[in-house]
């Protein structure tokens, strides 16, 4: 249960602490840059939601504010996320099934709203889960729908569940994600990392989490021919 949501400003701000330069494939952040990234995020606001939780009202929700404030789900920094999670654990009991559709739709809504405000932002949804998906079809639909938005989804799998579905969502086998109506994902926006492989020392968590993000970000920017500092007040950001 639990996910955080953050945004990375396109154009001037960095993916990985260095100036993000759409068009520059050398912007691939190594582990050190990633530490800079997380330091930079210390004072940032993150909307944070939980899913698969039975609320005090008895209802099982698949997208609720971790801090308990539905109208203002933002918390400050990574510490804020951890604190919100710790308090949610007392008020919310873990419950199945595991559904991703609603949180992905919520993130897509925020990314779409940002576009309508002419903001130039790129969003990253971080999903931390220990469960096997119950709504694989709905999750695929939500991801395909979101695949043309300034959004990437990082999924961290915790525990020993069978995460083969997540690998399917990650679409690293070259097969593009397809929804039930025949729409195909515009691009790959998912990165999945199983924590047990990180814990076994096979891969570094930072490296594996951020491995695909720069390319996903650049694919979005390049396709729209968005270059750093190219906006003016009269020009739409896309």
């Amino acid at each position: 249960m639990g996910c955080g949501f953050s945004d990375i400003k396109g154009g001037q701000q960095a993916v990985g602490g260095t100036p993000a330069r759409p068009g520059d494939t050398a912007a691939d952040p190594g582990p050190n840059e990633a530490v800079v990234l997380f330091n930079k995020l210390r004072d940032k606001y993150f909307p944070s939601w939980g899913f698969g939780g039975r609320l005090p009202s008895g209802v099982v929700s698949h997208c609720f504010s971790l801090n308990g404030n539905e109208s203002k789900p933002e918390v400050v920094g990574v510490d804020g996320i951890l604190n919100a999670y710790a308090s949610a654990i007392y008020n919310v009991s873990l419950a199945g099934p595991t559904l991703f559709g609603q949180v992905i739709n919520k993130a897509a809504e925020i990314a779409g709203y940002s576009l309508s405000r002419y903001e130039r932002k790129y969003f990253v949804l971080l999903i931390i889960t220990d469960g096997v998906l119950t709504d694989l079809a709905e999750t695929k639909n939500a991801l395909v729908r979101a695949s043309d938005l300034p959004l990437s989804v990082l999924i961290v799998g915790v525990g020993n569940a069978d995460f083969s579905q997540m690998e399917e969502l990650d679409a690293d086998n070259g097969r593009r994600l397809q929804n039930s109506e025949g729409r195909v994902a515009t691009r790959d926006i998912v990165q999945f990392v199983p924590m047990r492989e990180v814990n076994a020392g096979q891969i570094s968590v930072v490296q594996s989490l951020l491995e695909e993000l720069p390319e996903q970000f650049l694919t979005f920017m390049r396709r729209r021919d968005i270059k750093p500092n190219s906006t003016s007040m009269t020009q739409a950001p896309y």
Binding site: A108, E109, A111, G112, Y113, L115, S116, D148, L149, R183, T186, R223, R224, A236, Y238
Partner: peptide, 10 residues
């Protein structure tokens, strides 16, 4: 969720 004028790649 996207505004008019957004270039949708589909």
């Amino acid at each position: 969720i996207v505004p008019d004028g957004y270039l949708n790649f589909l």
